[in-house]
């Protein structure tokens, strides 16, 4: 589904990704771990199409189609979703209005009619129940004044509505208390199927107790320096990243 080959990316002439190789197949869950500043969020943003980053070498393909040149919205239309580490506050746009616009613009791009209002309401209600989101919350301005946990839950709520093929969760666990973590992980797990895939970016093992990865990759200094199974995540939790840094630098 997602294939990244020798990906180099830079922002303002600073090279951050220095040759990433990663393949994610349908039905898989991948975890990307690594110390601060290793390039995890950059990788997520580059896949989602943030324009600040320039791909200088290598390629990203999604369902066998090169996507480096596509705009963020075109990637979204193809089924790529990024759950933001820091969801942006947008005063004046309600959660509902935002989701309606996102759904209908995506449908428009696919040549479909707008979703009838009744179906839209039903969809929004169903998915808000899945994420245990209060109805009142939906009429509030997007992310404005939301707690850290509410923001993250709102991200997964959006994911539930848009039903992407590939979901990238960028530190979705940060700022979540135990209950919120359970709700969010539960939401992600319910959305999992053999046709879609999830890439979880995290510092910690605890989210991976709930969303169990098939593969774990360690990103360090712009490269994937180690890959393994879920046991690798436990090892990192126990020993930290220093041994990996030493291995790489040796």
């Amino acid at each position: 589904m997602l294939k990244i080959e020798n990906l180099h990316a830079s922002v303002e002439d600073k090279t951050i990704l220095k040759g990433i190789n990663l393949e994610v197949k349908a039905g898989e869950v991948h975890a990307i771990m690594g110390p601060n500043g290793s390039g995890k969020s950059t990788l997520a943003s580059v896949i989602a199409g943030k324009e600040d980053y320039e791909v200088t070498k290598g390629k990203i393909s999604f369902n066998d189609e090169d996507i480096e040149e596509l705009a963020a919205e075109e990637r979204a239309h193809k089924g790529i979703f990024l759950s933001f580490q820091y969801p942006v506050e947008i005063p004046g746009v309600s959660v509902t209005n935002f989701m309606k616009t996102a759904i209908n613009e995506t449908r428009k791009a696919k040549g479909l009619e707008e979703m009838p209002a009744k179906d839209m309401l039903k969809l929004i209600r169903e998915k808000s129940e899945l994420l245990e989101i209060d109805r009142k919350f939906l009429s509030r301005s997007l992310n404005e004044g939301f707690s850290g946990g509410e923001k993250k839950r709102n991200e997964i709520f959006q994911m539930a509505i848009l039903e992407p093929q590939l979901a990238i969760l960028d530190e979705t666990d940060s700022g979540l208390d135990i209950d919120a973590l359970r709700i969010v992980a539960n939401g992600v797990n319910k959305l999992k199927s053999k046709d879609n895939a999830v890439v979880v970016i995290t510092h910690y093992q605890r989210l991976l107790d709930h969303i169990v990865p098939d593969y774990v990759h360690v990103l360090y200094n712009g490269k994937i320096v180690k890959s393994g199974t879920k046991e690798l995540a436990h090892e990192l939790e126990e020993k930290g990243y220093d041994w990996i840094k030493q291995e790489v630098n040796a």
Partner: peptide, 25 residues
């Protein structure tokens, strides 16, 4: 706000509509 633009676009809202939505908001 560029980060708001990226946020909206990453949800499938095209550039022009995203701009309009932000200006309206």
């Amino acid at each position: 706000d560029e980060s708001a633009m990226f946020y909206l676009r990453s949800r499938g809202i095209p550039e022009k509509e995203a701009k309009a939505l932000l200006m309206y908001a």
